[in-house]
Design a protein around this nucleic acid. Sequence first.
DNA 1: CCCGTATCGTTATAACATAACACTCCTTGC
DNA 2: GCAAGGAGTGTTATGTTATAACGATACGGG
Lengths: 177, 177
Amino acid sequence: MANACSCDHDPATWASQVEDACLRQGAQLTPLRRRVLKIFSGSAAPLGAYAILEELSRREGKQIAPPTVYRTLDFFLEHGFVHKIESLNAYAPCEHLGHAHHGLLAICEACGRSEEIEDAAVMRAIAATAAGSGFTPRTVMVEAKGLCRRCAGPEAAAHHHKPGDASSTSAPSGSRK
Amino acid sequence: MANACSCDHDPATWASQVEDACLRQGAQLTPLRRRVLKIFSGSAAPLGAYAILEELSRREGKQIAPPTVYRTLDFFLEHGFVHKIESLNAYAPCEHLGHAHHGLLAICEACGRSEEIEDAAVMRAIAATAAGSGFTPRTVMVEAKGLCRRCAGPEAAAHHHKPGDASSTSAPSGSRK
DNA sequence: CCCGTATCGTTATAACATAACACTCCTTGC
DNA sequence: GCAAGGAGTGTTATGTTATAACGATACGGG
C-alpha cells in the first residue's frame, strides 16, 4: 500500500541519474543546466524560480535574468527531471526518475521538505473515479500538506526541525502564508 | 465508486446555498460580496482574481483595486464557498456546499470548465498511502486535467466545445501554456 | 558557405498577490 | 449620548511569479 520502491532519493544520486538520462536521450546537459542541477542538489526543500535565480546569480557573480532560469526549468520539466509543485509555486527534483512517473507529493509544513510517494492504488482510484464521472484525465496532480515523519514524531513537538541542513541553499522558497 | 451525490451544481443553486449558509452562520453577505457571487454565478469556468477584478470594475463603472477582490475571495475561501485551483491560479464555486468537503477537481482542457467529484475512496487511498510513509496530511489537493464528458464524446472531436455559453462572464482566466 | 536549430542573453512587461494605512459604519458597554 | 472596538471597504504602493519578443552565438548538415 505504501511507497513500494526503495531508492534513496539523495541529491547526488539524482544528479547522476539526470546525467545518465541526458546521455541516453541525447539531451544536452549544458553548463548552465548543470549549474542549476547543482543548486537543486544543494537544497533540502523545493526551490522557487527566483530562489534559483538568486543563487545562480550569486554563484556566477553576475545578475541572471528570469527567462534564463525558466528556460532551464522548462528543460528539466519536459524531461521529467523535476516537478513543479503548484501549491508552492516551487520546483523539486523528481525522486523516481527511472520508474513510474509522479504519484503523491507530500509537503511538510514544518520543515518545508517535499517527498514523492509512488502509489498505484491512489492513481487507480483517481482514474476510476474520473472515468465514472465521464472525465478523461491526461495529467493528475496530488499534493498533500501536513507533517512528515520527522516533524510529526513524538520528540518533534519539542525541538522543531528546520529546513537548513542538507547543504548550501536550503530555505523553502514559496513560504507564503 | 463514482460521484455519489446527485446535486445539480448550477450557478443559481450555488448562489442561494451561499445565501443560506451566510444566514445560518451569521456571515455577512455584503453588497460587494453579493456582486462577486453574481460574477461567479455568471461564469461557466473558474475565474482568475483579475478576471473578477475586471468584471467587477466594469459592473461598478469604476476601477476596483486588487485587495478588494482578494479580500472577498478570502471570505469565500474561509467559508468554503469557493475553492482555489492551484494549477490555474483561479477560483471556482464549491459544488458540494452542504456535505463533504473537497474531493477531486477535474479540469477540462478543451472547454475550461472544472468539475468537482467527491469520492471517499480516493481520499482514503491517499490517507492510507501517506500514513504508510509516515506522513500526516492536513490538507489534500487533487487536480486532474483532461477532457470532460462533453469534450471527449464521440461527436466532440469534430466541433470543439468552447467555454462561452453559460452566461455573461465565461472565459477560463488562467489559460497559461 | 549558408541555413536551420538549439541555446543563452537582454529588455520589458504581464499576471498574480499582499502590506500597510485610512476611513466608514455599526455595535456594545457605560 | 458617546467612546471603544471590530468588520468591511477604499487606496496606494509594492512584492512575487512568469512570459513575450528579439538579438547574439555556436554548431552541424547539405
